[in-house]
Computed example of a mutant assay.
Amino acid sequence: MQLKNLFTEDRAVSPVIGVILMVAITVILAAVIGTFVLGLGDQVSETAPQASFSFDYNGEGNLTITHESGEQIAANQVTITGDINNSGGNWTSYGGSDPISAGSSVVVNSSASEFADGETVRIVWTSESGGTSSTLQKWTYNA
């Protein structure tokens, strides 16, 4: 046996690398297909929109919520919840426009005649499929 030929022999390298690459490709394809078959692929793209809202309370039970900046949002995906009349109504049920864009606003009323200390109002976004929801902004009354 020649020692020099043993170290320079490279015929078996190509098939080993080929098998490793085939296994890696198979694993990656199985992961991608499995993600979409199980429905996880749809949830990945359902991220909450980036938007900023301002709150203006007049001291008499009326709270004006204004979309200041950020993405346009479908009004039927935004609910306003908290210590208000008609809690859980969507943006248009308070007289807002569809879609919600910068500058659009709604006025909500306190469930009592005025907001009490610690009462909150939340703007909640829900994905189109209903599988994901997120609080976009929260306002708490501090007396």
Score class of each variant (00 low, 15 high):
2 Q>K: 14
3 L>T: 07
5 N>L: 09
8 T>I: 06
8 T>K: 12
10 D>R: 15
11 R>H: 09
11 R>F: 02
12 A>G: 06
14 S>I: 11
14 S>R: 09
18 G>Y: 09
22 M>Q: 08
23 V>M: 12
25 I>T: 15
26 T>S: 14
32 V>E: 10
34 G>F: 08
35 T>F: 02
36 F>Y: 15
36 F>C: 07
37 V>L: 06
37 V>E: 07
38 L>F: 12
39 G>T: 14
39 G>M: 10
40 L>V: 13
41 G>P: 07
44 V>P: 02
45 S>K: 12
52 S>W: 03
56 D>G: 03
57 Y>Q: 06
57 Y>L: 03
58 N>P: 01
61 G>I: 03
62 N>T: 13
63 L>D: 07
63 L>G: 03
65 I>V: 12
66 T>H: 01
67 H>V: 06
68 E>F: 00
73 I>G: 05
74 A>V: 10
75 A>Y: 09
76 N>E: 13
79 T>S: 12
80 I>A: 03
84 I>V: 13
84 I>T: 15
85 N>S: 09
86 N>C: 01
89 G>E: 11
92 T>Q: 11
95 G>N: 11
96 G>C: 01
98 D>T: 11
98 D>C: 04
100 I>D: 03
102 A>R: 01
103 G>P: 05
103 G>R: 05
104 S>Q: 13
105 S>W: 00
108 V>K: 02
109 N>G: 02
111 S>V: 13
112 A>D: 15
115 F>E: 01
117 D>K: 02
117 D>N: 13
118 G>V: 07
118 G>N: 11
119 E>C: 02
120 T>D: 10
121 V>R: 08
121 V>D: 06
121 V>T: 13
123 I>C: 03
123 I>R: 13
127 S>T: 05
127 S>W: 04
127 S>D: 10
130 G>K: 08
137 Q>I: 02
137 Q>L: 00
138 K>N: 11
138 K>F: 00
139 W>F: 06
140 T>L: 02
141 Y>G: 00
142 N>A: 09
142 N>V: 10
143 A>R: 12
